[in-house]
């Protein structure tokens, strides 16, 4: 059996450049970074600076006027 085609294929510098590009494959562009959605905690940006206490507190306590 022939090891490979008896006549060696002829390549161009462009072929070599293409092969170099395949070898030195660049990283992907950022397509799916870790963002707020889906979120497990609720609230929007900055909901945590004071904290979730406000979000978890009892509904609608209206403070009386003094």
């Amino acid at each position: 059996m022939s090891v490979y085609t008896p006549v060696r294929p002829v390549t161009t510098p462009a072929d070599l450049a293409q092969l170099s590009k395949l070898v030195a494959e660049p990283e992907s562009t950022l397509a799916d970074p870790p963002l707020s959605t889906p979120n497990a905690a609720g609230g929007g940006v900055g909901a945590l600076l004071l904290g979730l206490g406000l979000l978890l507190s009892p509904p609608t306590p209206k403070e009386p006027r003094r």
Partner: peptide
């Protein structure tokens, strides 16, 4: 004013 606001509204 603060007296009638809903403090739990995120």
């Amino acid at each position: 004013d603060a007296a009638t606001t809903d403090l739990n509204d995120p």
